[in-house]
Amino acid sequence: MQDDRLIIAGRELTSRLWVGTGKYKDFIETKKAIEASGADVVTVAVRRVNITDRSRENLLDYLDPKKYTILPNTAGCYNVEDALRYARLARAAGVSDLIKLEVLGDERTLFPDTVGLLEAAKILVKEGFIVLPYTNDDPIVAQKLVDIGCPAVMPLAAPIGSGLGIRNPYNLKIIMEMIKVPIIVDAGVGTASDAAFAMELGADAVLMNTAIAGAQDPITMAEAMKFAVYAGRLAYKAGRIPRKLYATASSPIEGML
């Protein structure tokens, strides 16, 4: 699958596993896990610089922006105004026009506020951002995001950090069939089989953070996810057999005694 590249807004990406950088013990573990995952898109948050303790290192000292596509998010934003502010700050910080847009609706579920999301996406697309929206597994909202000008859509598999896996494979499948831009399944993956499942459904990529960072051995889990995404992609391209209720013998009857 050498030429199985994912292209989003003209950017060619080699890995179909995207990873977050939160919740790791330290930057060394973050770097090792990302290397083990083989991901080339990594998400980051935008926050105040610690001005009282300048000994604290910068994450980007560990992640070479030439090697990775840095995808800033608007995590923690619960309204359109905040999401716009953080997106603009992310761009001002000078990495690129890419933004993973999140407008969250509620602290307990971290489910997207899709009304706010559509409003914010419309404004940011007009301002020239490449908007990758974190959204619900709702095909209609996904289509509206595409109509606005989002070059990819990122529906959730389950609540962020929940590890519940693919809760609504049928909606995701409908999104993948209906939507003509890349679909990145984002959030909710718990273990390798969840990632493989997402890819088998036809996802173009999977984005995860907690499933790796929260594992007992994050670096080994990162490697497991790399293989799972790869295996799921191969299985999708190969085309699985249809499900049947009854057996079909694999060995020929002919030649039996």
């Binding site: 930057f27 973050t30 998400t43 980051v44 935008v46 105040r48 994450l59 700050l89």
Partner: peptide, 8 residues
């Protein structure tokens, strides 16, 4: 003054 961090 803001910069990029890991979310953790």
């Amino acid at each position: 003054i803001l910069s990029f961090i890991g979310g953790g």
